[in-house]
């Protein structure tokens, strides 16, 4: 709790955090064109929450990203994967055959499918890492 008096860390962290989250989303949506994707974006997003929690206390972090959200987020990430697969099956394709998502333009369908599943990965990884951090921090007091 001595962290609370550490002005330099508090100011530096607060001014860095917006860029953390912006960078996470940049990595997520630019993953098709450069290095990056759901896994990296998820970990960067979680690292931002962890930094905030380390410096301002876990309760402050939980006020921003409540624990029930991340608990649901892990399951939702996996569900988005499953839903994408089921959607392609309903369109008459095989499981995770993204081309069927847009019958007229299979390439566009592929882009759509990759966007969905990468979002699922982002949800699962970001929520999972944040939740693990919360659990360890709760145990510590």
């Amino acid at each position: 709790m001595r962290m609370r008096e550490n002005t330099i860390l508090r100011v530096a962290a607060k001014s860095l955090l917006p860029f953390f989250f912006l960078f996470a989303f940049y990595v997520q949506f630019h993953g098709d064109f450069g290095p990056g994707g759901g896994f990296q974006a998820g970990v960067i997003f979680a690292a931002g929450v962890v930094l905030y929690g380390l410096i301002y206390g876990v309760d402050a972090a939980k006020a921003v990203i409540p624990k029930p959200w991340v608990e649901v987020g892990v399951a939702l990430g996996v569900l988005i994967w499953i839903a994408t697969g089921v959607a392609t099956m309903l369109e008459g394709g095989r499981y995770l055959e993204y081309g069927k998502l847009d019958v007229a333009h299979p390439v566009h369908g592929q882009h759509l499918g990759i966007l969905f599943v990468e979002f699922g990965v982002l949800m699962a990884v970001a929520s999972g890492m944040t939740l693990i951090f919360y659990l360890f921090a709760e145990r510590g007091r």
Partner: peptide, 25 residues
């Protein structure tokens, strides 16, 4: 899609990545 890693990760080996998300879960 210029990044080949993304294509293989999400499309060609989609089942694999699906399994990995499940392992994280």
């Amino acid at each position: 899609i210029p990044n080949v890693v993304t294509t293989v990760l999400a499309s060609y080996r989609g089942y694999d990545t699906f399994g990995e998300s499940f392992v994280v879960f």
